[in-house]
Design a protein around this nucleic acid. Structure first.
Lengths: 161, 161
DNA sequence: AAGTTATACGTTATAATATAACAAATATCG
DNA sequence: CGATATTTGTTATATTATAACGTATAACTT
């Protein structure tokens, strides 16, 4: 998956340096939203004296490239499920592409959607007013199927099983 | 408008105290997104020794009542245009109701929408997956009609004309 | 290859946003 | 009135994010 990101960056002429690759790896490994300071801790395993700007700069790059997303309601970051999937990779594409996120308050999982209808509804509503959308944030908080039907997958930050 | 909020709270059995009313007044007066610490400064004109928790608690209350909204991308607060409009006031209603926000990066204005189609698209997409939405954040950043056509209304924080 | 420019990174300090915890005051209800 | 719940005051601190400036590394030009 990191290699897939690498190829994408090469194709775009942007540079996935060792540091950025490390941070991307940490985000992807987590498999759920991670805060910048958690990443910083993880980063310090490899890069002793890392400081906040180190991680925030890497995150800025990864966001620009659309390799990760920021979940505003959590001030946390997740890997982009769509750009890195081989099935969706149309290399030239859509750097920070539109996406929607479902945040489960039960298990902490975040699901990424790429729903044309939602984007469409938003663009329609704004065009009526003469507003031109550059970037959008769509996040829903609630309960995922598993947590709602009582088959809890309590993979929370504390890791309690 | 404050009186309208007062009536709404009375009808609900919640208490719009002097402090909360003051904070709501500051948010409404601003007419654009305001940060918690700006509100704190404003609050100190009336309440000398006010501290962060003072303002955050008032904001929590106002959010619960749906009298204000938080713009996640700005970490800032705006008055709710819909609840306080007499035309929309169905007193029993919808405490923290769904809404969408258009943030103009030109003039800083924020427009609140209450678009059924957007909400519908979101609910549809999530139901397919078995996800149950409790709260949603929908925010778009871009240029409003005035700023896009070059009739700038540069009413920014600095107030430069 | 050397010089020049642009980009990325290291480092220190600090800004901006938000909450925990506990005590004191005020309102509500029996 | 007295018991209970809610609200506010107060101190301290946690969490998230950026400014500013210097150094190193890569890329581009001749």
């Amino acid at each position: 998956m990191l290699d897939s990101a690498e190829r994408l960056c090469v194709a775009r002429g942007s540079r996935l340096t060792e540091l950025r690759r490390l941070v991307l790896g940490l985000v992807l490994d987590a498999g759920r939203p991670v805060g910048a300071y958690d990443l910083l801790d993880g980063l310090r395993a490899d890069k002793k004296g890392a400081a906040p700007p180190t991680v925030y700069r890497a995150l800025d790059f990864l966001l620009e490239q659309g390799l990760i997303h920021k979940i505003q309601r959590l001030s946390a970051f997740v890997g982009c499920t769509h750009v890195l999937d081989a099935s969706h990779a149309h290399a030239g594409g859509c750097h920070p592409h539109a996406a929607q996120f479902l945040i489960c308050t039960g298990c902490g999982q975040v699901t990424e959607l790429d729903d044309r209808n939602i984007v469409h509804a938003l663009v329609d509503a704004t065009r009526d007013i003469g507003f031109m959308v550059r970037q959008s944030t769509v996040e829903a908080e609630g309960l995922c199927g598993a947590c709602r039907t009582g088959s809890p997958v309590p993979a929370r930050a504390d890791g309690a099983p």
